[in-house]
Each structure stands twice: as C-alpha cells, then as structure tokens.
Amino acid sequence: MATPTVVREAVETTASPPPVKPRKRGRNRRDQIAGYLFLTPWILGFVLLTVGPMAASLYLSFTNYNLFTSPQWVGFDNYVQLLSDPRYHQSVKVTLHYVLVSVPVKLVVALGVALLLNNSRRGQGFYRSAFYAPSLLGASVSVAIVWRALFSDDAIVDRALRLVGLNIGGWIGNPDYALWLLILLAVWQFGAPMVIFLAGLKQVPQELHEAAAVDGAGRWRRFISITLPMLSPVIFFNLLLETINAFQVFTSAFVVSSGATGGAGGPAGSTLVYTIYLYQRGFQDLRMGYASAMAWMLLLVVGLVTVLMFRLARFWVFYGGDDDR
C-alpha cells in the first residue's frame, strides 16, 4: 500500500501515538531523541513565534477588539454576524472562483513549461530564468501598473482578442472581467511551482527511464508510468500549497484593485477576495475581532480541504522512500 505514513498520522490527529514497529529498543530510543533534536529549532519557533499569535487570534475572534481598548468578550457574535454579512458572502464567492480557476490553470502551465525545459538542450539557464522572471517581480505596484495597462481598452490584449472576434474592451473597469485579470496575473507568475516541478523532475532517477526505454516504452508511456508517479509528491505539494495560498491571495489583488474608485476589491466588489475583506475589517474598520473570526473560518475551511487532499493523496501519491510501500 502506498499510504504515506506521515500523512496518515497527520490526518488522524487523534492522541494515539503512531504504531511503533517492533524494533530494537536502542534504535528506537535513539530515534526518539534524534527526532526531537532535529526538530528543536522548529519547536522553538513554533512555541515562541507561532502558537502565541495563533492562540491570541483565536481568542480575539470571540471578542470586539478595536486595537485601542482591551478586547471585550462577545462569544460567538462575530461568527454569527458573518453568516448574514452580504459582503462576506461576496468575498467567499469571489475567492472560490479565484481558487477553482487559478490553481489548476497555473499548475498545468507550470508543469507544462517545466517539462518543456527538462532536457539538456542549450540555453536552459536562460530559458529557466526568463520564464521565472515574472515571478521575481513579486506583487509590487509596478506589476499593478503594467497589468492594468495591458488589459486596458484598446491595449494589446483587447486588440488580440478582437482579432478572434471577442470585444471586451477594458478589463479592469468591468466587474465581469476584473477577477479574470487577477487570475491571469496568478497564472503569469507560475515560476514558483515551475521551479519546484523542475527540481522534482531532476530527482526522477534517470536509470528508470533508460530501463523503460530499453523495454520499448514510448515517451508518453514513460511519462505516465514513470515521470508522473515519481513526481507525485511534488505535484501533491504544489497542488496543496497553491490551493492554500490562493485562498489567502492578498497582495496582488490589493495592488491591482486599489485603483478602483470604490477602493480595493472593486469595481463593485468583483475582486473582493477573502483576505482583502479581512484586511479592510481588521485594519481599516479596526474590527480585529471580526477579522480574526474571518481568519478562523478560513482556517477551518482550508483545513478541511487540506485533510481531504491528504486523504485523497493516499490513492495517487507515491513516495519512493516509504518503508511500507
């Protein structure tokens, strides 16, 4: 069975300790000590820098907190309000749309380009860097300016689309298309998953391919039966992380939509992704309790998605290094 042990344990976070295989006691105790020794920096960071703030935000989600005065306990009020907040619903809708489209498209593009570049032809360094260059820009105001310019009325995208009979005009001012602008921006910055795919492809042992080629397997066959399974941990990583990150998309949406007359998230709420609304509630309206409740709702939902993805991973992710394969 290809069930990855770590994942199974991670998913079943019940208090029961993982099954310890009958082994020599000395080895086992040494493993126990070594495990925690290797984890010391992470545990320190987790305890000092992460747990406290996380717990604080959980606590604040049950309070009214305006940053100036001490938080006041309100129980589940914030969570109840979320349910009937039309703008919250809008942000959920926009975010789901964004996640469901941008993640798969970006990953397919990233994998495609990674495969294209995974050979020993000349100029690989150049190509790799060039394809990665858009992601180096981050999500700065410069990106916002160029992106808005390319998709404005009568600019290059509009003209190109008119050639194929699509007449959209400017995208950024049009509530029906503004979100697509952000999706395309995410896809354009496909560099990070591409690099991870490339690194993963490098780890596929060459001799497997050679052996299969000797056995007469064609290129497609080798891709399906060697590359994809060997790459599955990395595909899984990219899929999971891109999904988590897409749920939390902020900076790019913020800088691109900030120009809208109605403020970030516009026009007409069409790019109001979850964290923009969270930011507006927390830092503009100074309702940090409400923002924290939003954050924990997101944690719950994305946590469920994550667990689901880990469960499904059993069926398709293959780890060469697992002892119980």
């Binding site: 509530p175 809208a260 007359t261 109605g262 403020g263 516009g266 026009p267 007409a268 709420g269 507006q280 503009q284 309206d285 100074l286």
Partner: peptide, 21 residues
C-alpha cells in the same frame, strides 16, 4: 471615530450605484 470607515463605505456604495449593481 469610524468616520474613515463611513467615508470608504460611501465611496464603495456610490461606485456600486454607478455600476448599476
């Protein structure tokens, strides 16, 4: 206090009206 929020709210609703949303 809260005037900043109200100003932003006004701007946003004005925009939504202009868009006919």
């Amino acid at each position: 206090a809260g005037a900043g929020t109200i100003e932003a709210l006004f701007l946003r609703l004005g925009e939504e009206i202009s868009y006919g949303r």
